[in-house]
């Protein structure tokens, strides 16, 4: 294992390796034979709880960063109008949400109607509509697929797509049950085989990445 001895962030690296080993060992030694949590298990539980809290804080930092980026865009007059709209919306939503939070705790009664209104009538329709537009784009993309690359793999891809779509229609299944059976077989055998291979590949890759982090080879936290 290639360990870089000239660590740029020795404290951070040591922390990452240390907590990683604790959490990893907790899979094996987190509980004693009676099921009670060991010291290692308690430490691991603390770290996992901390991970939840710190992930929440990291999300807030990320959102603040988003706001600062668009603020910089406004200052640079770089699509400032859209950035201004985004920032205003963010601030309004955040302000209303904080107001709801304060009101909830001051009145000792849950009251997130205003925040829910924003979610139900702004965020939900827009995001669902974005997904709807995707259907049009995918139709066009599927029709163009063979034009972009015409080879056996592309034909297989398009053929599978068509077979799965056709086989999903009950009218077709009623008229030609074989198509429905083919659809089920595709999902049950070759798709499953390919998906299993992909899953194993992803898992191996994830483990390799995790090991590199826990050995200090990768230090994505520096910077």
């Amino acid at each position: 294992m290639n360990l870089n001895l000239k660590l740029k962030s020795p404290v951070s690296t040591a922390l990452a390796i240390g907590v990683g080993i604790v959490v990893l060992l907790g899979y094996f030694f987190g509980n004693d034979p009676s099921g009670e949590a060991t010291t290692l298990g308690l430490l691991r539980a603390f770290l996992l709880q901390g991970a939840i809290v710190w992930a929440g804080v990291a999300m807030l930092v990320g959102i603040f960063n988003l706001a600062s980026v668009h603020l910089a865009k406004i200052r640079a007059n770089e699509e400032a109008s859209y950035s201004f709209i985004l920032l205003i919306t963010l601030i309004i939503t955040l302000g209303i949400g904080l107001y709801d939070i304060v009101e909830t705790f001051t009145q000792q009664e849950i009251n997130f109607q205003r925040t829910s209104w924003i979610f139900n009538y702004i965020q939900l329709p827009i995001e669902t509509s974005l997904m709807a537009v995707l259907a049009i784009s995918l139709t066009y993309a599927a029709a163009r697929l063979l034009a972009r690359r015409l080879n056996l793999i592309s034909v297989v891809f398009v053929g599978v797509v068509l077979m799965l779509l056709i086989g999903a229609m009950p009218q077709v299944a009623a008229q030609a049950p074989i198509l429905a059976e083919i659809r089920q077989w595709i999902l049950r055998v070759p798709t499953l085989a390919g998906a299993r291979g992909i899953l194993l590949g992803i898992a191996l890759g994830t483990i390799a990445t995790g090991v590199r982090i826990l050995t200090g080879s990768d230090r994505p936290y520096t910077g």
Binding site: A16, G18, I21, L48, A51, T209, V211, Y221
Partner: peptide
């Protein structure tokens, strides 16, 4: 680093 280490493990 703590967050990344926990996530990796």
């Amino acid at each position: 680093a703590i967050l990344v280490g926990i996530g990796a493990a």
